[in-house]
Write a protein that binds this DNA or RNA. Sequence first.
DNA 1: CTTAGTGCAAAACCTTTGCAACTCT
DNA 2: AGAGTTGCAAAGGTTTTGCACTAAG
Lengths: 145, 145
Amino acid sequence: MADLRQKFHDRQYKLTSQRQTILQAFLDNQDRHLSAEDVHTIVRGRASEIGLATVYRTLELFSELDILQRLDFGDGRQRYELNETNTPHHHHHLICLRCGRVREFGDDLLETLETAIAKRSKFTIVDHQLKFYGYCEECQKKREN
Amino acid sequence: MADLRQKFHDRQYKLTSQRQTILQAFLDNQDRHLSAEDVHTIVRGRASEIGLATVYRTLELFSELDILQRLDFGDGRQRYELNETNTPHHHHHLICLRCGRVREFGDDLLETLETAIAKRSKFTIVDHQLKFYGYCEECQKKREN
DNA sequence: CTTAGTGCAAAACCTTTGCAACTCT
DNA sequence: AGAGTTGCAAAGGTTTTGCACTAAG
């Protein structure tokens, strides 16, 4: 949190109240994957009404600064979550094709795979995203009806 | 190709010239990941100008019929390729963050991972999508300048 | 004070939809 | 003939942008 201030200062970005409020929204909703609209709704009422355009610009900025990670669940809008890619074991998503619920799971094996692929393809890999699509437990039950 | 005709006949879909032309576009461009706009461009001129809306509707239909696989490289548009998920080892993508080039790689290890995760999460997994982001060989060289 | 950031409204994009005309089967 | 299909234009939804105003450093 202190090094966030530092990060901003270094690049001459300003730590406005809007940016703080938006960051707070993510801190308060670590279990969710927020879209711009979601953030706008959460933030509405707090402080002096943040414009939607500002939300978009902030999400963009935070992604560049690696504060947020951009996600895509194929529902037609970008979603974001606090970035944990720095931690050695970051997580991925299980997306239910019926109810749209998103569960998370950690990876481990994937690191091995990444190394192998990097070597073979001569790519320098800086990030990965893995998504599994299927049916969650509840929806499997409903399906049997 | 014969069972395509069958598939259409069974569900009372019609095998129109537009649909054939669009399928041909994918057959002619197996190395690319085509967006609706791409298809529209490729197809323009052939036959009697296919409407963009028709392209969208056809891509949608083909995806439902598992003829095409929908992809998402985070560039703000849906892309498609001929579906090979039936084959036991389908492939995934390496996306260059600098030039946007997309390379493919097969998976193998991923099958193991999928099984493990299905068991642990009680999800019935029907598909997966793995993307690695990084810098391709050429861009690494350019970067060093 | 200076420069970056904000809000608003308009614009830009990609995608979907309503509807009359059309064409496979 | 009759069902599904097409094209066009209009509408929808998300994201971006121009610009005058505001606020952080």
